[in-house]
């Protein structure tokens, strides 16, 4: 699957901004306002969501402002759809 640069989400409180680009393996770089309490939970959720979409090679920059899991899943999915051109909602 070819991965282009794509973004989803905002820097608003309660949201997460996901930038996806080409990479080797899944390289996830997270900055989170709740790093101490939830950093590892958020990283594994991003990883799971991407794997579930069949994306195994990508570099991800995520800036989190305390988003809930449902928001994180939605933003990661939207960014992945934009990056891969594969519309998971349509199929």
């Amino acid at each position: 699957m070819e991965i282009k640069n794509a973004v989803a989400g905002t820097l608003e409180s309660g949201d997460i901004m996901i930038q996806i680009g080409p990479g080797k393996g899944l390289d996830i770089n997270l900055k989170s306002s709740v790093e101490a309490q939830f950093g590892s939970q958020i990283r594994s959720l991003i990883r799971e969501t991407l794997s579930g979409l069949g994306i195994t090679d990508a570099s991800v920059n995520a800036v989190d402002k305390g988003a809930l899991d449902c928001t994180i899943r939605a933003r990661v999915t939207a960014a992945a759809v934009r990056a891969s051109g594969v519309d998971v909602w349509k199929d």
């Binding site: 101490a36 309490q37 939830f38 939970q41 809930l68």
Partner: peptide, 8 residues
């Protein structure tokens, strides 16, 4: 909703 936070 949020899961269990890690120890500070």
């Amino acid at each position: 909703i949020i899961g269990t936070p890690a120890e500070l």
